[in-house]
Design a protein around this nucleic acid. Structure first.
Lengths: 344, 344
DNA sequence: TTGCTCCTCACGTCACGTGAGGTGGC
DNA sequence: TTGCTCCTCACGTCACGTGAGGTGGC
């Protein structure tokens, strides 16, 4: 058996860390002397202590460390994969944000701006808009979400809409000329643009400073972007669902119609709530009560998300009663929707 | 002017965060009403607040955020580069550690081990050993550093030695067969191996579980690895020096000889201390007192590091009176040495 | 007895979030 | 007056590090 100091030296952990892990229930000694309170560690605990040191060195949260040390290899791999994925996303986010910051600093020194021009087929833009438009609302309190985010990167245009209760993302191929931009397009502009897309043909979108221009089917539309920072939607799209379930939109609609929804009201507005409950076999047994995981959502929002998907086959991802519900459409890998649950 | 709530909505920061930044001196309002204590933000502060939100979103420490917002573009770029570099290294570290963790978990399930075999020229190994051997000490209290770390990767063997006051790293080309390993080779084994390398020719090193074997010049040497985790030397090698200075080993030796060293004692052991001081022109004016940055180091350790470098030209990197002193040898990009300073 | 190791408990760090209890401005 | 926003202050979070003050075992 090793004392705490010996264990610290052998494992590379500090004495205070070992005491902390003991208190936190993550990693404790094999035996504690009831008279003196001395902690004694068994020889076979050393391997775990060393693993723990490695995992903490790279910033794994203690909750995940416990999963790695728990003995279930599949759980351990999930925790390891999850941590690596978080770090990879963190780095990708940082690259993006820091290059944006650099661009903004450049702009301060040299305020001339090059316009961005996007060319894309009207059908693609129409489909992407239809997949997200429902999720945007004209909210004067939150001007940033009173529009649709257009993110132009090389080769693609991504659209994001949210009203802070739900979020929809889609994208379509586009040809980019000029610097990459992210610009919030007012819902009024979007709604005026949509009819112009019906004729098909190419669309040209231009962002020049605050000025937005769209040319489609011989018509031209101009407006101003919303000068706000958009909420960090990427973080929201990276859920860690515990259950994934393939079903059909029609089947789900039928389930929702069966059970009478509860009515909930918030801020004076009434809305119907449906309960999605997962049985122990991870199937959706009913839209009523069940033994397993239950998620409550605004039924109208769910129906809108189903309709916007544009296809019957869908995948629901659940992560617990307060985790967002994600709706993915396998037929359109680039389109998905997210719903915040209401409180139980 | 914006109230704190309006500023929060416009910038994407929370009210509590804005109050915190004010208290922390990172970002405060343009005016505070002395009667009510209300914070009022000027319109031109919005751009900075949005930058701040982006930077915090990707985890930049507030000290670095201040550098970005400070107005000096070169400082801002340094802070941005530094943060990105830290994240990149963090991810690289995590990839390595997590794959090691996976290998260790595999080993628990399936304890058979495949040996690792390294083949390399004796001259290369001899040179790499000579570049690091001086920094290892047989310390019974810290068994992990009573040896030289051999890290075998595809195509190269990296050697690391440290006694916790200094650190030396070198590497040499090697052919790897079997899994990558990191193994602590006892100093006694290293010292017995060194004479066998004088004859030249190929050397073969084998790690089979705890067993070490070296074959060189017709002789064979066996021993046991030290079963410990090596200190995290990579973190130590990632300094952020404020001053970088090219000089010659002979020139530096002459400077050190000029000034009589102060004698310091620690744990009953006496050692000579030399003061390296940088003038405002970032040259090493003398090994005595100066106006600029001063770093105190164990003179014998510094001389040993100079000798082990094997070349005259060197680069000193200083980062303040308590930051480690790094000694790099441009002629051998893969070899460097690091010295912890003694207290002023 | 001395010196070392161990103990608990409290407080500090970092960047905030979350109340409690109270005030200011329309 | 009501409702909203703002204020300060205290405490919680996360994963420890750092003393203070005291005890156990050789």
């Amino acid at each position: 058996m090793r004392s705490i100091g010996e264990m610290a030296r052998a494992s590379g952990l500090s004495v205070s860390a070992l005491r902390f892990y003991d208190g936190a229930g993550v990693f404790g000694p094999a035996w504690v002397d009831p008279r003196s309170g001395y902690r004694w560690y068994a020889p076979e605990q050393l391997a775990d202590a060393r693993l723990l040191a490695r995992l903490r060195r790279v910033g794994m949260p203690l909750a995940d460390v416990s999963r790695v040390l728990g003995g279930d290899r599949a759980e351990a791999d999930l925790a390891l994969d999850g941590h690596l994925r978080r770090l990879e996303h963190g780095l990708a986010d940082a690259r993006r944000e820091l290059s944006t910051v650099r661009a903004l600093l450049d702009l301060r020194e040299n305020p001339m701006t090059e316009p961005t021009r996007l060319t894309l087929p009207a059908e693609g833009l129409a489909a992407a808009l239809d997949a997200v438009r429902f999720a945007a609302t004209a909210s004067p309190e939150h001007p940033a979400v009173a529009g649709v985010l257009f993110e132009a990167e090389a080769g693609l245009l991504r659209l994001v809409a949210t009203d802070r209760y739900r979020l929809a993302v889609s994208r379509t191929a586009a040809e980019l000329a000029g610097p990459e931009v992210g610009v919030i397009v007012p819902t009024a502009f979007v709604d005026a643009l949509r009819p112009l897309l019906a004729a098909g043909g190419p669309v040209e979108l231009t962002v020049d400073g605050a000025r937005l221009t769209a040319e489609a089917g011989g018509s031209s539309l101009t407006g101003e972007r919303i000068d706000q920072d958009y909420p960090d939607y990427r973080r929201l799209t990276r859920l860690e669902p515990t259950h994934r379930l393939t079903t059909g939109a029609d089947e789900l609609r039928a389930l929702l119609a069966e059970a009478a929804p509860v009515t909930r009201s918030q801020d004076g507005v009434e809305y119907p709530v449906s309960v999605l409950s997962l049985g122990p076999d991870a199937a959706l047994p009913s839209a009523g009560t069940g033994e397993g995981l239950q998620v409550r959502v605004n039924r109208d929002f769910l129906l809108e998300a189903l309709a916007a998907g544009g296809s019957d086959q869908l995948v629901l991802e659940l992560g617990g009663p307060i985790a967002p519900l994600a709706i993915r459409f396998p037929a359109r890998a680039d389109t998905f929707s997210l719903l915040m649950p209401t409180a139980p």
